[in-house]
Each structure stands twice: as structure tokens, then as C-alpha cells.
Amino acid sequence: MSGEPIHAELIAVPVAVTGARPRVLTLFDGSALPAGPLESGHRSLQAGLRNWAERLTGHPLGYVEQLYTFADPARSRTGRSISISYLALTAETRTPLGGRVSWQDWYRYFPWEDRREKIATIETAIKPGLDHWSAGSDEHRARASLCFGLDGAAWNEDLVLARYELLYEAGLVREAARDGRPAHGAFAPGAIMTADHRRILATAISRLRAKIKYRPIVFELMPENFTLLDLQRCIEAIAGHTLHKQNFRRLIESQKLLEETGSLASGSGRPAKLFRYRPEILAERAHAGTRLTLARS
């Protein structure tokens, strides 16, 4: 309809990795991402995003990059709603957060994405619904196999958004039922979020998983000094699968990403060397960087 109001919203997906768990900063006990309207006083989209996210959460954002613009006509019942989303990489602090602001494990929303331990989530809780949805359709079955690594297809960790959207199309997530789509089986496990915030989170995870392979963006999630095991655990947390320890270390050494600090990590057991990113690598982190192939264990 011509003349319908258009609302522009800025949405942040603040991500940290704490204790080998990927975490996302949320509102309302985990059901929403920090968001607010674009205002005329904002000097830029990113400035507006930082203003809203930091005002709502009390937590400063670190590295920020634009993620995606969502403008589907059905996003709002009160006019056209455009959401400009941003991925923000930061560190989780010990400072108490106010109100209903909380850090949540992102696998709370997508439990099938964490393949570091052998779990049967896909076979037992997702595949039956996909089989029902794809019955009689070779196209549907091929898409399900590609997305979820079924029928001999390889698992691709980057397809987080594709998997979520396939489940939505098949009516196997609660957001689909909320939007009036018919279900083809029991809902897949995972916490629901308001509006399309779980879709936006899936977009952010897909982006970050793909990006750590060809840009040194993981630097933004690490402390200044760290052990090689710390770095490996951080990458495994994001990718959702384990890495072969020796292959990983040979790769890091060959890429010349790090330098020793000359210090050792404190703690029980044999002290591990502390490393930091080489200054020239940090200086280049805003540009396309070193490819980090994720060699699985």
C-alpha cells in the first residue's frame, strides 16, 4: 500500500566467547537482541547502533560491522519495518548487568549447531519432521540433506541461516507456528526469540563462522595474551566442532600470526607459553587477512 509508514530499526548482535562457550548479549531474559529506532540525531547508522545497544545493556560494544538489512514486507503489522543489523565482537565482563540484560549461550537457540560432542539432536528431534516435510519431493529432500548433512552429505558449519530458514519453511520452529505456518512434525529444540531475532542471530553466526576462515577477526574475541589452547578453544566454540590439535598448531605456526610474550600462563599443571598477535597482523585486521583452515579432529 502506498504511503504506509516505514520504520527503521538498528539491531545489534553482541558476541563474546567465554570459557569456550559462544555467548550473545540479550534483553528480556534472552528473548530479544538489543535494538532501537534510527533517530534523526544519530550522526551515522553505527553511531545510532552503539547508542542504543550501550544504553539498553550498559555494556560497550567493541568491533562492529554491518551484517544484513532485513526488509521483508511481513516483518511488521504496523507498516514497513526495515532492520539494519550489526555483528559486534566484544568481551564479556564481570560487571553486573542491569534489568533483564543477560549473556546467553548461542547454542541455547541452535542446539543442533554444536557438534563438539556427539549428540543425536538432528537424528532424533529434527530428521523425523524433515522426512515428513520432504516426503514426495526430491527437491525438499535434497535441500534437507545438504543443510543437515543427511543421506551421506557433508556437514557445512557455515549454513546456520540456511538450516534455520529450512526449519521455518517446514514449520519446525515455533516462530513458524507463531506466524501461521503449518507444522510438519514436532518443533526442533531451541529457545524462541521475539520477531525475527533468532533469524538475525543465525545470520550473525553464519557470518562469523565463515569469516574466521579468511580474516583474522577472531583477534577481537581474545584477550591481549593467551595460550594456543585458549585460541583453539575459542575457534572451536564458534565453529561448533573440534579441531585436530597438532594440525591446528602447525597451521598457526606456518601462518606466522603470533609471537611469544616470554611469559607463562599461571595455574596448576605444566605452565603453557603465552602468545599475542604480531603487531603487523593487528594493524591489518581491518582488511582481508590470513586464511585459517579449520582442520577437524
Rank of each mutant, 00 (worst) to 15 (best):
G262R: 15
A265F: 00
E259Y: 00
P279K: 10
A288M: 06
G267V: 11
S266V: 08
T261L: 08
T261E: 08
P271R: 00
P271W: 02
H287L: 12
T290R: 14
P271N: 04
E280N: 13
G269Y: 02
R285D: 00
L264C: 05
T261N: 09
G267H: 09
T261M: 11
E284P: 01
A286Q: 12
G267I: 15
T261C: 11
E280Q: 13
E260P: 06
L282D: 03
R285A: 02
I281G: 04
L282I: 12
E280L: 13
R270W: 07
P279R: 08
I281S: 06
R291E: 02
G289W: 02
L274G: 01
E260T: 13
G289D: 06
A272T: 14
R291D: 07
E284Y: 09
G269C: 08
E259G: 11
E260M: 11
L274Q: 01
L274Y: 07
E260F: 05
P279H: 03
G289S: 07
L264T: 04
L282F: 10
S266H: 01
E280A: 12
T290S: 00
S266G: 09
A272L: 12
P279L: 06
R276H: 10
A286V: 05
L264W: 03
I281F: 00
S263G: 04
I281L: 08
I281N: 03
G267N: 09
K273S: 04
F275T: 13
T261V: 13
E259W: 03
L274E: 02
R291Y: 03
A272Y: 01
G269H: 01
E284T: 15
E280R: 15
A265R: 15
A286C: 08
R291A: 00
A272H: 07
A286N: 10
E260Y: 05
R285N: 06
L274T: 08
S263D: 02
G262H: 02
Y277W: 13
R285T: 09
S266P: 06
A283S: 09
L264Y: 02
K273F: 00
F275M: 15
L264A: 06
